[in-house]
Design a protein around this nucleic acid. Structure first.
Lengths: 228, 228
DNA sequence: ATATATTGATAGTAATACTATTATTTTTGA
DNA sequence: TCAAAAATAATAGTATTACTATCAATATAT
C-alpha cells in the first residue's frame, strides 16, 4: 500500500493554481511548508509573507503558484479528499457484499490519519488536522457558488456521491442517502473537533471513535424496521 | 407567543462585549445593522468601518461595544442560540411523553426561521442565515479553548446538552446521545447550506426539509431493534 | 449648573494582501 | 556551449484592515 500511495498523483482542477506546485521544487516546498504552518498557527494567521520567510523564498514567487491563500486551502483540501477517495476506492473495490463494502468505506472515511507515508511532500497526518479545523472555511464564503461552478469542490462532491451510492446499495428504500452521506463526512470532522475542544458535546474520546458512532448510526438507520 | 418573545432578553456572557449593546440606542443599531450587513456581504468583507458608515456613527464608537468583529459574531451567535433555546424549552416544557417531546425539540431546532418578530431590533430570519453561513468560523480558531474557558459558547453547549438529555429520556441504552445531539444541531445547519449551494449532496429541497431527515434519522436510531 | 459619561472626529500605526518592476539565476535546447 | 527563455528573487509601492490614541462635542444625571 505505501509503495502504491507513494507514486499516486491526485488530479486537481488546474484552475485552483496558477502554476502546478507539483511541477517544481519550489512548488513542493510551498505545499509542504504551508501544511506545517497552517497546522501550527491556524489559517487566519498564516500569510504568504511568513511562508516565504520560512522556505527562504519570496512572497511574490508564491503568488505565481497560488492567487491567494484561499486558493491554497482549496488545493490542500482537494488533495486530501482525492487521497481519501483513492484509499476508499482501493479498500472497497474488491468487496462484493454491499454491507461490508459500506462498512469499510465508513471506516476509511471517518478514521483519523495516524501516520503519513513520508515519501510524498504532503504530510497527511497534519493535512487531516487542517481539514478538521479549516475545511469549512473553504466553502463558507460568498464566492462558493462561483467557485463550485468552476469545479473547485469536485473531488469532495464525488466522494460524497460515492458514499451515497454505497448507502443506496445497502438499502434502496432509504429516502435520504445523499443527506446521510454528507452527514457522515462532515459529521466525522465535527466529532473530531468536538472531542478535542468540546468533550461534553460528544461521546467520542480516546476509547470511542467517531468511526464507531457513525458505523452504528448508519447501521441503525439502514436496517431499521418499524415492527420494534 | 409573539408578545412573550418581544419582551424576552437573552442572557449573554458579558465578557463577550465591552459595553452591553442592549443598553443603548447606538448598541442596538450596531447589532441590528451588523446583522443586515453580515448577511449581505459575508463576515469576511464586513468591517467596523463600513458598519459605522452605515449607521452614521464612528468606527471608534463601535469598538467601545465590541473588541472586534469576531466578538460581535460570538454575540450574535449567542443571541441566536439563546433565542432558539427559549423557543425549544417553551415548546417542549408541557409535553410529558419523551418521544413527543424530543420530536418537538427537533422540530424547533432544525426548522428555518420564516419571519422575525419585528418588535426586537434583531432580525431572526437573517440571523438564522448568518448562523448557517458563519457560525463555524466562530469556533474554528486557534483561540477556541481559551474562549470556551471564558464561557463564550455556554448557551450553545447548554442547548446541545438539553437535546442530549431528551435523547436519553427516549432511549437510555443508546450509547451516543451527546454525539447524536451535536450532530443534529450542526448537521441541520450543514444540510441547509447544502440545499442552497450543493443540492446534489443532500436530499433536502423545497419539499423535503432537514427537519424530516433528522426526525427520521433520530427515530430510526433510537427505536432500532436488531431482530430485523 | 456642573460633573460625568457617551459619542464623534481626526489622526496615526502596523500588518495584510496584494501588484509592478527590475534584477538575477537557472534551465533548455539549437 | 552559449544565447534565449523561463523561473525566481529583490525591492518598492498601494489600498485596506484592524485597530489605538487623543481630544472635542454632546447628552445625562445630580
Amino acid at each position: 500500500m505505501e509503495r502504491l500511495m507513494k507514486s499516486i498523483r491526485i488530479g486537481i482542477n488546474d484552475k485552483i493554481f496558477l502554476k502546478d506546485p507539483d511541477s517544481s521544487d519550489l512548488g513542493k516546498r510551498i505545499v509542504k511548508q504551508s501544511i506545517l504552518m497552517i497546522d501550527e498557527m491556524g489559517f487566519e494567521s498564516f500569510t504568504f509573507r511568513k511562508l516565504g520567510a520560512q522556505i527562504g523564498s519570496n512572497e511574490s514567487s508564491i503568488y505565481r503558484y497560488f492567487e491567494n491563500k484561499h486558493k491554497l486551502l482549496l488545493y490542500l483540501a482537494s488533495w486530501y479528499w482525492g487521497w481519501l477517495e483513492y484509499k476508499m476506492v482501493f479498500a472497497t473495490n474488491a468487496i462484493p457484499d454491499p454491507n461490508e463494502k459500506l462498512q469499510t468505506a465508513i471506516n476509511v472515511l471517518t478514521q483519523t490519519v495516524k501516520e503519513d507515508d513520508s515519501f510524498s511532500h504532503v504530510n497527511e497526518v497534519l493535512l487531516n488536522k487542517i481539514v478538521i479545523n479549516e475545511y469549512s472555511k473553504s466553502y463558507l464564503t460568498k464566492e462558493v457558488d462561483q467557485e463550485n461552478k468552476e469545479g473547485y469542490f469536485e473531488i469532495y462532491k464525488r466522494l460524497v456521491n460515492r458514499l451515497g451510492e454505497m448507502i443506496v446499495a445497502v438499502n434502496k428504500d432509504y429516502p435520504y442517502p445523499a443527506s446521510l452521506a454528507s452527514s457522515v463526512l462532515e459529521g466525522a470532522l465535527h466529532q473530531y473537533f468536538l472531542t478535542e475542544h468540546f468533550p461534553k458535546l460528544t461521546d467520542c474520546n480516546e476509547s470511542v471513535s467517531p468511526t464507531q458512532f457513525f458505523t452504528d448510526l448508519v447501521l441503525r438507520t439502514l436496517t431499521y424496521n418499524n415492527d420494534g
